[in-house]
Design a protein around this nucleic acid. Structure first.
Lengths: 120, 120
DNA sequence: TCCTTGGATAGATGTTCATCAAAACAGTGG
DNA sequence: CCACTGTTTTGATGAACATCTATCCAAGGA
């Protein structure tokens, strides 16, 4: 399993869209997250993982839900992993994925004109 | 000004990602919105419009904020328009754009495991 | 050790997309 | 009617991306 470093720096990103104009750098960071979610297969993968019992799902479960080859699913999981939205862990034979709810929460907060992000 | 029909059917979309697996159709609809936001320029445009005084901004203001040609900005505005995120209105010489807050709110709600969308 | 199964990587291919220059379109004022 | 400014459309080009086949790595069981 490759590194799980969060590629997207959500720590500093961002005030709500409607509060103040996004800086160029913030926009680039945010766009990486949106790009990761800008595919139907990846959205379903994310949803399958997030809604699965125990908060995690193994790749075997995920592959069965699509008419796609294993490598393609693996590719999409890699995109989600590198964007920081999910993490994968091997336990014995199978690899289990789970979502990072904080990242989804921060992303959600950017879209509505509520409070700014509280610095961690 | 072309039609402003909301291309994305957010009316029926969706329960939160973590509540139940997205259907294939729902994932396609949602991905159109995320795809529209999956570009740094479009995110900054959205933010510039949403945070602008009066809730609207003219194209002339927007163009000045980027090192891009007019046609490129116009292209990005078209993508945002066709996704249903913004609307444009011509008043005399200038065209003014404003965001559709409901669409952003629904998108935001999908990301966090709160209540399901209340039917309008 | 060898074989089998789950999963990831590498390389190739067709499609989608961001950008620009050139042209067209829409208003305003002379 | 003509010239000028603001905005959109068209057409072309290069980069990014989704998908596949083939190959490889990791873990478990004979």
């Amino acid at each position: 399993m490759p590194k799980q470093l969060p590629v997207v720096a959500m720590d500093t990103c961002c005030s709500p869209l409607a509060r103040e104009p996004l800086s160029a750098g913030q926009a680039i960071e945010l766009s990486k997250l949106f790009k990761a979610m800008a595919d139907p297969v990846r959205l379903r993968l994310l949803s399958l993982i997030a809604s699965h019992a125990g908060g995690e799902a193994c790749v075997c479960d995920l592959t069965d839900a699509f008419d796609l080859t294993g490598p393609t699913i693996s590719h999409h999981l890699k995109v989600l992993r590198e964007s920081g939205l999910i993490t994968g862990e091997r336990r014995g034979t199978w690899v289990y994925y789970r979502v990072h709810p904080e990242v989804l929460a921060r992303l959600s907060a950017v879209l509505v004109p509520g409070d700014a992000i509280v610095p961690a």
